[in-house]
Write a protein that binds this DNA or RNA. Structure first.
Lengths: 134, 134
DNA sequence: CTAAATGCAAAACCTTTGCCTCAAA
DNA sequence: TTTGAGGCAAAGGTTTTGCATTTAG
């Protein structure tokens, strides 16, 4: 069973068909679907799912810190599982999202927060770039 | 005259009272007002300004790369003058926004983009932290 | 059974836009 | 005078919510 579903059980949340479905879609998505996209993918498998439930489910998971809200500047919230521990570079020409992880960057962010007298709780970073032609 | 106003003239845009007012508010704000806040501050000085004009003005300035849109995750766009060249750390307990600049970080972001085969065009970074009690 | 979750549609937000009027150049 | 800009209100898009109904536990 996936981590998300597991955690929902532990928290005493009801495992409804709709929740299981939405959660499994999030767990099995490698891209960064917005709510409407999650809804479409869910509705394909079970057309009784409503978009309100998708919104309620992502809010639930977000409040539980199980998923993270991403904002790529297009006015729609996107989601991905927490703890994936990677950052995003967005190709400004194609919209493609490249994931990366850089330990030096992770360390530097903590250091900066500390230097300012803060403990780093969370962060959000997006790079926007243009592909270098070879 | 401020840089923003100056640049509008150069671009042949009309310097209406409303534009001048909105621009002066942006130039003289040290925080990160959202559109509604800009509108309120403008309306205080001239109650004929409409929120549509504020939206049109920020879009104008944003398209001209004179101001930058910030998203702190609350669903409202915030703006600040471009070229201020600083990042934001948000105090998760008070909502206070601390600005900082770290050259090592700036350099690292460029390096990371390059390593991935991209030229860094833009970026967005927010740190969220809790104040360390002494 | 009972409280929690869902579906539906309405409402709430933020933002954009059409249209007519006004004013900068 | 001419064309860009503004005001107003309606429309658009995303997200939230009230309420009656269903369902997991």
């Amino acid at each position: 069973m996936g981590k998300l579903l597991n955690n929902c059980q532990e928290r005493g949340l009801r495992l409804t068909n709709q929740r299981e479905l939405v959660i499994s879609i999030i767990e099995n998505s490698n891209d960064h679907p917005d709510v409407d996209e999650l809804y479409k993918r869910a509705a394909e498998k079970d057309n009784s799912v409503s978009i309100a439930t998708v919104y309620r489910t992502v809010k639930l998971l977000e409040d539980a810190n199980l998923i993270e809200k991403l904002e790529f500047g297009d006015g729609r919230a996107r989601y991905e599982e927490s703890g994936k521990h990677h950052e995003h570079l967005i190709d400004v020409e194609t919209g493609e999202v490249i994931e990366f992880i850089d330990e030096e960057l992770e360390e530097l962010k903590k250091q900066i927060a500390n230097k300012l007298g803060y403990k780093l709780i969370d962060h959000r970073l997006e790079l926007f770039g243009k592909k270098i032609k070879l």
